[in-house]
């Protein structure tokens, strides 16, 4: 996935290994599930989770005791996912404007969108295709707010943005999803009846 530096920032130690093992044992499942929901398929979820724990290992001293480890590793996963999508698409994904409206891509166009294809194979197609049309940040906010049930403050910490930005992204993302999911469902039913 992402390029790694040639060596860790600090010398390895037994404490560092113990920190990693404890993190994987305690938070591995939640981290993997978040990565799976964000990426929409198991292969990418595995890569994201693996890379996230390697980052945890390298940066273990930067974790502040008393803060949420889960928020920390969710932030790592979110950033990794965003970077990965940017690399795959070869463009910088930008926040959609306020007046953005959901648009239904023609099926031919969706067949050339790898993210849409991956989502559609793995998740409920209507939800997956709608989620695939959100920006990575909007997708992360929706998952954290609606599925992971995180508070605005926690989401703001994970996304490294303000609560106002979280509210704005969630509001726009929900508007799009509420338009896209019924359309996608209708299309599914239509395909099912014609098949």
């Amino acid at each position: 996935m992402t390029a790694r530096p040639s060596r860790p920032a600090e010398p390895p130690s037994d404490d560092q290994n113990a920190f990693l093992e404890h993190a994987m044992a305690t938070y591995g499942r939640q981290t993997y599930n978040y990565a799976y929901r964000l990426a929409g398929n198991e292969a990418d979820a595995r890569d994201l989770t693996q890379e996230a724990f390697i980052r945890v290992y390298r940066a273990w001293r930067s974790f502040q005791p008393g803060t949420s480890f889960l928020s920390w590793i969710y932030r790592i996963v979110t950033n990794l996912h965003r970077d990965e999508l940017r690399k795959r698409k070869g463009v910088i994904l930008q926040e959609l404007p306020d007046d953005n409206v959901a648009r239904e891509l023609p099926r031919e166009a969706r067949q050339h969108d790898p993210i849409a294809q991956i989502h559609e194979r793995q998740l409920s197609e209507s939800v997956a295709s709608a989620l695939a049309r959100l920006t990575p940040d909007q997708r992360a906010v929706v998952l954290l707010a609606d599925v992971e049930e995180r508070s605005y403050q926690e989401i703001a910490d994970i996304m490294a943005c303000s609560i106002g930005t979280v509210r704005s992204r969630l509001h726009r993302a929900r508007l799009q999803l509420r338009k896209m999911i019924p359309r996608a469902r209708a299309a599914e039913q239509q395909q099912g009846s014609t098949a």
Partner: peptide, 21 residues
């Protein structure tokens, strides 16, 4: 409710991920 239902399945982290790490 739709989103929670779509992601209701909880998966175990594959052992291969831990081994790779």
């Amino acid at each position: 409710a739709t989103l929670r239902a779509a992601f209701s399945q909880e998966l175990d982290m594959p052992a291969s991920v831990m081994a790779s790490v």
